[in-house]
Write a protein that binds this DNA or RNA. Structure first.
Lengths: 140, 140
DNA sequence: TATTATCCTATAGATTTAATAGGTTATACA
DNA sequence: TGTATAACCTATTAAATCTATAGGATAATA
């Protein structure tokens, strides 16, 4: 299951990316528009800022804004920050690898090899999809 | 994340499918061979039996055995029973569809459309992989 | 009738997720 | 300079889910 955190984060990023003006957008506006708990969204946007996706400005007229061009933000990066590993098991994860406690030999593990395929299939989607593509999907 | 339940279930099925003899295999043997808690595995095999994948026999010489040919058991079926929906969000699920509370229009939701692609990519793997293929993967 | 092994329900413990609380800090502007 | 605004930050709670275990009931074998 995709976590609400990731879902809301993606929606917020899409909303920010689809704005014409480059002035900051308030959390409250995004939360209202996307039907998200404002406090929860607050913590999500904070994470995205700390990881270099968003900039922010405090006080009146403040809010959040994208730091990079939507076309330069691949889904792989966003997913890894919000959702964690793209792989379904740590033993096939590129960025979060961990050996299984059971399983003496990964190469002989049927689950390992199946999940390798699943990982690759997901990667091929995420690697070829940027935030800009997400906006396209939205409108068409 | 793939649940332990699914992981263990897949390992058990692979183990059963890779046996030469057609006599029942005891839970204890599978659990030992695959380093799985026997009681936990018990409940998993029970689920698989109730869903028509396994047959069982009680008493001495009893155990579990496959009902169908490994080549006739697609991963889609196993995953849906053990792990639940293949889709990461209910709104793109073929077998477990649910509308999102937020989201007035699915077609305009970027998350929806992204997860549609992810679902399709996973489906293409699961649909083209049977239990027999899992054994092949196992041996290299 | 004793032994074996599955069957079945309930429940406990652990972990993760989702959301809230409550205040702090920085900025704008009158 | 003071007030309103809006992000910043940590901690905590509430709910859900996952993992595992307990303890006996049932059926088959010999």
């Amino acid at each position: 299951m995709l976590s609400k955190k990731t879902k809301y984060g993606l929606k917020a990023l899409t909303y920010l990316a689809s704005q014409d003006k480059q002035s900051p957008i308030q959390i409250a506006e995004i939360a209202k528009h996307e039907n998200i708990s404002q406090k929860f969204l607050e913590s999500i946007l904070l994470t995205l800022r700390r990881n270099g996706f968003l900039g922010s400005k405090k006080g009146k007229g403040g809010g959040y804004y994208l730091i990079k061009e939507p076309k330069d933000i691949p889904m792989t990066a966003i997913m890894r920050i919000l959702e964690g590993p793209i792989a379904m098991v740590p033993c096939v994860s590129l960025n979060f690898y961990e050996k299984c406690d059971d399983c003496p030999d990964e190469n002989l593990c049927s689950v390992h090899n199946l999940m390798l395929k699943i990982r690759d299939s997901a990667l091929s989607v995420y690697r070829n999809t940027t935030l800009e593509d997400l906006i396209q999907m939205q409108t068409g």
